[in-house]
Amino acid sequence: MADSIEELYETYNILTEAKENVSKHSQEYLKCMERTKGNDKEKKLAAQIVSKFFKHFPDLQEKALNAIFDLCEDDDSMIRISAMKVLPAICKDSKEYVPKVTDILAQLLQLDESDHNTPTNTLSQIYKEDPVGTLKTVFNHVSSTDDATEREKCLQFIYKKIIKMEEKLTSEIYDLLLEEGKKIIPTLFDHGIPK
């Protein structure tokens, strides 16, 4: 196990030292992605490395993101938490992935209370990077899911984390909340209103 972690650190050093030529090291980056299927320590470290160099490998981004999403569903709570915590870095550098990441986090909001804070906080961080994109995706998730718990957790997120920050709501966000809120009200009656 020590050797595999050591190899991961060596790979990390190669990517770091490559600086502006980092994109020429796709094989090393792929090795890091493979380690997301390793032991617990490898998974956590690999998730950090994959997210850190994500923007440098556009051709591998879908594969990298899926590797991190797999970790978000790991059986080990600490690995899930570690994986979720790297998602804002990916969204900061690659805003086109905000909808996909937000949708996954919206699903993860229904985790047990012990894990629930992580997707909530991660979603809040992504919201700061792209408020409109995040909010639209969460509302879209509410209207498209058949899972009452997911709908309820998403609406709680919108209420507790966004609407309660009323002093920070821009007119664009306020208008979006009204517009999207009107759209989902009929779907709530179709699916059953959360208690």
Rank of each mutant, 00 (worst) to 15 (best):
K43C: 05
K43Q: 08
K43T: 03
K44E: 11
K44I: 11
K44Y: 03
L45E: 03
A46L: 01
A46W: 05
A46D: 00
A46T: 04
A47S: 09
A47I: 04
A47K: 06
A47V: 00
A47M: 00
Q48M: 09
Q48E: 12
Q48F: 08
I49C: 03
I49P: 01
V50M: 00
V50P: 06
V50Q: 02
V50K: 03
V50W: 02
S51R: 05
K52V: 00
K52W: 07
K52E: 12
K52R: 11
F53Q: 02
F53K: 04
H56L: 08
H56P: 01
H56I: 02
F57E: 04
P58E: 07
P58M: 02
P58R: 01
P58C: 01
D59N: 13
D59V: 02
D59A: 11
D59G: 11
L60Y: 10
Q61W: 01
Q61M: 07
E62G: 12
E62F: 10
E62S: 14
E62R: 12
K63V: 11
A64C: 06
A64Y: 03
L65K: 01
N66E: 13
N66K: 10
A67P: 04
I68S: 04
F69K: 07
F69P: 00
D70G: 10
D70Q: 11
D70N: 13
D70Y: 10
D70P: 03
L71F: 07
L71G: 03
L71M: 04
C72V: 07
D74T: 07
D74W: 06
D75P: 00
D75M: 12
D75E: 11
D75C: 08
D76P: 00
S77L: 13
M78G: 12
M78Q: 13
I79E: 00
R80F: 01
R80K: 14
I81P: 05
I81K: 14
I81G: 09
I81V: 14
I81W: 04
S82F: 06
A83H: 08
A83V: 03
A83G: 05
A83T: 08
M84I: 05
M84N: 04
M84C: 09
M84Y: 03
M84H: 06
K85P: 08
V86D: 05
V86I: 09
V86P: 01
V86Y: 07
V86R: 05
V86L: 04
L87Y: 03
L87S: 08
P88E: 06
P88C: 07
P88T: 04
A89N: 14
A89G: 14
A89R: 12
A89S: 14
I90E: 00
C91A: 10
C91V: 08
C91E: 03
C91H: 05
K92S: 15
K92E: 15
K92W: 09
K92L: 15
K92N: 13
D93W: 09
D93L: 12
D93T: 11
S94G: 02
S94T: 15
S94V: 15
K95I: 15
K95Y: 09
E96M: 13
E96A: 15
Y97H: 11
Y97A: 01
V98Q: 03
V98D: 00
V98T: 10
V98M: 02
P99L: 07
P99S: 05
P99G: 02
P99H: 05
K100A: 14
K100M: 14
K100G: 08
K100D: 12
V101M: 05
T102N: 05
T102F: 08
D103L: 15
D103S: 15
